[in-house]
Design a protein around this nucleic acid. Sequence first.
DNA 1: TTTCATGTAACTTATGATGTTATTTAATAT
DNA 2: ATATTAAATAACATCATAAGTTACATGAAA
Lengths: 148, 148
Amino acid sequence: MRKDSRLSRMLHVLIHMNQLDAPATSEKIASMLNTNPVVVRRTMAGLRDKGYVTSVKGHGGGWSLAMALSDITLLDIHNALGESSVFTIGLSDEHTSCPIEIAVNQAISDVLIEAEALLLERFREVTLDVLAAGFADYPLNQQASSGE
Amino acid sequence: MRKDSRLSRMLHVLIHMNQLDAPATSEKIASMLNTNPVVVRRTMAGLRDKGYVTSVKGHGGGWSLAMALSDITLLDIHNALGESSVFTIGLSDEHTSCPIEIAVNQAISDVLIEAEALLLERFREVTLDVLAAGFADYPLNQQASSGE
DNA sequence: TTTCATGTAACTTATGATGTTATTTAATAT
DNA sequence: ATATTAAATAACATCATAAGTTACATGAAA
């Protein structure tokens, strides 16, 4: 079944953008992701609408972060991408008044709702600054510098 | 994004099969699901391989339950359908040695693993007999009969 | 005023699940 | 025996939809 890797890709891009001092063009982002500038604009548009990035046209234009990585969570980006459900599992709808179908769908739905709630809660707990530099260079994991 | 409703549909079918005294043909199951007999065989084949149903060729043949509904869980059927992942969310793989991509994928993966574990645990707790008759006719929910 | 870059609509391609046809195998009824 | 029924399976066709592409408009800076 098809997978949507936009969340992973956009997080990757946002963290790299944080290390740049100039806007990143859709062209550059696209070549980094082995994809197309229009696809990048399409996807980034959702993040811009929610205020996480800004876009500027013309010379020297492109995409920039609109806030600190520490102010953005995985959940923020997940929501901004606007995917309806995180599950490949769906419900049947051939006999919506059949008590068996209703019971089956209710049971599955209960589980999906609980699992999705956990997933979103965990996404909400992770900010992008924690992911930056791939943990390795992050203060807590360093051996040297900053004295003690 | 596409949804896979095979779990819901197969559970629905299995519970109905429990109420029949003769095998259900792929033809009958297909018309109940508004689909095709070959698709039914394809899907039921997975359940047969795991021992939940049996199939018989020829006159009077078709599909039958191989065990009590109380011995089958949602997890059993989910596993028998052999879907790789329950999530639409995937990881990126453009720069597998980039520490940022690694960190991002690790963070997402951690969450998916935890959420999937919860989902499978919940699926494991539900047996098909509990879904039968749509709760409404189930002993605990009945007002009348059986004395008391 | 030329160049660069986003914004967006319209269209094409790719992928994978589902649906279909055709043929083989096997079990039962006549 | 043999006709009928139904699963098993291979091969192919269709469909849905995400991703990719082309084309053109808008707007900002050199």
